[in-house]
Amino acid sequence: MTEDFYCEEVLSGNTAVNKVVETENVLAYHHTRPFYPVHIVVIPKRHIVSLLALEKIDNDLLLELFDVIKKVATDVIAEHGACRVLTNLGKYQDSKHLHWHVAYGEPISREVLN
């Protein structure tokens, strides 16, 4: 996997994605290799390494990001009754680009994905 899948593949257009919501600064799309039956990724279009790298200058972007997360989560809850919203840090964060997962259902077996 690349260091920043989201910049190098998704935002560059090298990997096509099924968009859910797009604003000027944020993109939400169906995960390309989902871990859950419903698995949507929400990313800022500007590179930010992780939640820990956010600074005060990012406050407007963070508000826009959370507006999109809220909309996606509201839609998933309306359809399925529940969802998870999470981000990963450190060694749990495969791609070094801030991203949030909005997911519903039990994890899909990795054997099914391969």
Rank of each mutant, 00 (worst) to 15 (best):
Asn59Ala: 14
Glu79Arg: 09
Val42Gln: 07
Phe35Cys: 15
Val17Leu: 08
Ser109Gly: 07
His97Arg: 07
Pro34Met: 10
Lys70Pro: 08
Ser109Met: 08
Ala16Asp: 13
Val42Glu: 11
Met1Gln: 09
Leu54Ser: 06
Val26Ser: 05
Cys83His: 02
Thr23Met: 01
Leu65Gly: 08
Lys91Arg: 14
Glu24Asn: 03
Arg84Trp: 11
Leu62Asn: 08
Leu63Phe: 15
Thr74Phe: 07
Leu51Asn: 14
Asn18Trp: 02
Ser109Gln: 10
Glu3Phe: 13
Asp75Ser: 03
Lys45Gln: 03
Leu89Arg: 09
Ile48Gly: 02
Val21Thr: 01
Ile43Cys: 11
Gly81Ser: 01
Ala78Leu: 14
Tyr92Lys: 07
Lys56Glu: 15
His97Phe: 08
Tyr36Met: 12
Glu8Ala: 12
Pro37Gly: 08
Glu9Met: 14
Thr2Ser: 14
Val112Asp: 11
Glu9Cys: 06
Thr23Ser: 10
Ile77Val: 10
Ile40Gln: 05
Cys83Ile: 00
Glu9His: 03
Leu27Lys: 10
Leu54Ala: 00
Val68Asn: 10
Glu22Met: 08
Asn59Tyr: 12
Asp60Ser: 14
Ala103Asn: 05
Lys19Pro: 06
Val42Pro: 07
Asp58His: 06
Ile108Asn: 04
Cys7Arg: 01
Met1Phe: 07
Leu98Gln: 04
Leu61Asn: 07
His30Leu: 12
Phe35Tyr: 15
Leu61Val: 01
Ala53Gln: 13
Thr32Cys: 11
Leu27Glu: 07
Thr2Asp: 15
His30Cys: 04
Val76Trp: 00
Lys45Ser: 11
Pro44Glu: 14
Ser50Cys: 03
Ser50Met: 03
Gly90Leu: 01
His80Cys: 09
His31Phe: 04
Val10Pro: 02
Glu64Gln: 10
Pro44Ser: 02
Val10Thr: 04
Val76Phe: 04
Pro37Ser: 05
Glu64Ala: 00
Leu51Tyr: 11
Asp94Lys: 02
Arg110Glu: 12
Pro107Ser: 10
Ser109Lys: 03
Lys71Pro: 00
Ala82Trp: 10
Val112Glu: 15
Val76Met: 10
Thr87Gly: 13
Gly81Phe: 02
Leu51Gly: 07
Arg110Gly: 05
Leu86Tyr: 11
His31Gln: 15
His99Ala: 09
Asp94Gly: 10
His31Asn: 14
Asp67Trp: 09
Leu98Pro: 00
Asn59His: 15
Asp75Tyr: 04
Gln93Ser: 07
Val76Gln: 05
Ile43Asn: 02
Val20Met: 02
Tyr36Glu: 08
Ser109Tyr: 12
Arg110Ala: 14
Ala78Lys: 06
Leu61Lys: 12
Glu55Cys: 12
Val21Tyr: 14
Glu111Trp: 10
Gly13His: 03
Val42Gly: 06
Thr32Gly: 05
Leu65Val: 01
Thr23Asp: 03
Val17Asn: 00
Ser12Phe: 08
Tyr92Val: 05
Asp94Asn: 09
Leu27Pro: 00
Asp75His: 07
Leu27Gln: 05
Thr15His: 04
Tyr92Ile: 04
Val20Ser: 09
Asp60Glu: 11
Arg110Ile: 07
Val49Cys: 00
Glu111Ser: 10
Pro107Gln: 12
Leu62Thr: 09
Val10Lys: 06
Leu65Trp: 14
Ser50Leu: 03
His39Pro: 06
Tyr29Pro: 01
Ser12Val: 04
Cys7Leu: 13
